[in-house]
Design a protein around this nucleic acid. Structure first.
Lengths: 344, 344
DNA sequence: GGTTATCATGGAACCGGTTCCATGATGCGC
DNA sequence: GCGCATCATGGAACCGGTTCCATGATAACC
């Protein structure tokens, strides 16, 4: 493996000149630059980023913390982040930290501390104040995706608004007997997504003068999770709602599969709406609020790179970007067969 | 940010001693080590891996090349790889390279060349000889997952055997009219998985004295892909097979959903078998051949780390590990309703 | 008790880049 | 023609670790 000294020797210039020629910083005559570039090409020279990082302090690498890889939203974000970073010459180093991982502390104290990253992207992870401080002390910018972290710029959709829109769509079709299948409100670490989506549902229902008591049914955010909940929830025709707002498309799809297994017609007997725009939503003809996690990943990277250019001196930069979701109406929702009389 | 010089000063020893005390290499008295460790803790010192890499040549980082993130098999492998690496103190840097990516060359020539990795894991990517040589010239070990690369140790299942087992399961139930829904044979870059799974199917059919002509139906390896193919394939009752061997569970699930939509009873009128052990397979009661991609990822890391310890001097180490798949029988397969007379 | 092996430590070189500083050459304005 | 700004280049220091080598101090052995 050749070093810059080899290149300099071959081009018959000093190391300093070779460095300037290749990096494009400082004065080098066009002629000399060409000599150096030729020599580098001839030797197949690629600069050691490590050595450069040591002196410049820039690593050309970004760390990403994410609780799941094998879930659509997260995988999609990851693809967006990776693509955007690669384009800018950055490496992406991935830390898959389940919400309550024992590795968590180790990652923050050791992995993230060894000065390998120019910045950090935190996806769908609620960071504790201690963790945020830890990262801030490293002096590296941090951006979040999927939920607000105090004092950290964040890319996300407005979960409350999206949930409200979804619920209002069902209400506008004439449904009164609506339940919400989503995450538990008590899970603090899960980034308020659960709470917010329930909150939007609650707001819309209350505004329509409907009670929300007993309307929350919890589920894992997966297809099997929704399926399991669906079998339990829809089994008894007597207490079956006419519409369900699912907190994610995966849950919604599980519900639809369960409904089909139980012989319940969707949407004639049951309307289902989700949030996501999951690739499966088309084949299940699912009405949903589309978001674009890949784009969220790209925006997070753009925001991070901007921070590299001109750091905001640790100021509480609450430049949070809130993205629109758009309602895609397919045929999993319709007016209820016959308007139910409110109150059971 | 404190450096080892700060630690040494605080502990009143030389840099060299501090380094030995913290790394555990070389002679240091217990007493001195304690002094240094205390000083390091007091300063919140974490060694710069960059600086260490520069002199040792070990980066404590592994690069991973993968064509998809948002597919079950790949995401699962990734989780396994990441988990195993983290446990050993390694970082994982991810390159998401779609099969025919324009970025591909740039990643090999530039990103992988900047001496940042101790080794590379290539998942489900058929590398060209040129690419393998390129990596070998870097002198870094390389392991593959999901298909053989010439001269590179690889972790995979025996796709031919698994496909054969799946087909034999259908045959043993009495099916004669079986088709295969899978990948196209012509896609060279797609790691022979398609070819091998078809190959196993073909072998089993031929052995049973059945023709395979016209039995291959291609599909994307996704649920919507299987669904689309299912609607087309199962629409006409006259030429409907009694059983389908799907090359992946996602395809199989798409087929089952399509069958249900068409009012076809599974397994009474149609048996479906897949390969994977996808988490959705339980809820769709899918018979399948389970593989464990997460474990494959872990094994790949183990193999790579072993190579770090004692390099095999670039010898063609064909220590490929072939993992067993095991047949999990659920209720998507059964004997055909009435034995069909062979030959339509 | 002298020689030697083992242990403990410090100084200095080194990894491979980047950047500061000094030096020299050139071009420009007056 | 002189002074100064700009450009081009080389030498050397430096980033933050690790490791080689030299020096001393102990302990072990005959």
């Amino acid at each position: 493996m050749s070093s810059i000294a080899d290149v300099a020797r071959l081009a018959d210039v000093a190391k300093a000149t070779a460095s300037r020629a290749l990096s494009g910083r400082g004065y080098v005559s066009a002629e000399t630059r060409q000599k150096v570039v030729d020599a580098a090409r001839q030797l197949g020279y690629v600069a050691s980023q490590n050595a450069a990082s040591l002196v410049t302090g820039r690593t050309k690498s970004v760390g990403v913390i994410i609780p799941f890889i094998n879930r659509w939203f997260f995988a999609e974000v990851l693809e967006g982040v990776e693509e955007a970073l690669l384009e800018q010459g950055y490496d992406m180093t991935l830390y898959n930290l389940p919400l309550a991982s024992p590795e968590r502390e180790r990652v923050f104290e050791f992995f993230l501390a060894r000065k390998r990253f120019d910045g950090i992207v935190s996806v769908g992870v609620a960071l504790s104040d201690a963790e945020v401080n830890h990262l801030h002390r490293l002096g590296r910018p941090l951006v979040g995706i999927g939920g607000a972290i105090r004092g950290v710029p964040t890319i996300s959709i407005d979960d409350v608004a999206a949930a409200r829109l979804a619920t209002e769509h069902l209400l506008s079709l004439g449904h009164r007997d609506i339940v919400h299948v989503g995450g538990s409100r008590v899970n603090e670490m899960d980034f308020h997504v659960h709470r917010n989506r329930y909150g939007g549902f609650e707001a819309a229902m209350t505004e329509a003068g409907l009670p929300v008591q007993g309307c929350l049914h919890t589920s894992e955010f997966t297809v099997p999770g929704g399926h399991e909940r669906g079998l339990a929830l829809l089994g008894d025709p007597r207490q079956r709602p006419t519409a369900i707002f699912a907190a994610s498309d995966e849950i919604a799809i599980g519900l639809i599969v369960a409904a089909r297994e139980l012989g319940i017609q969707v949407p004639a007997e049951l309307s289902v709406i989700g949030i996501d725009g999951h690739p499966y939503s088309t084949m299940f003809r699912l009405t949903t609020l589309e978001q674009h996690p890949r784009r969220q990943g790209q925006l997070a990277v753009a925001s991070l790179l901007a921070e590299f250019e001109n750091p905001t001196l640790g100021g509480h930069d609450d430049a949070s970007t809130v993205l629109q979701t758009n309602l895609v109406i397919r045929s999993s929702t319709s007016a209820p067969r016959q308007p139910t009389v409110s109150g059971s």
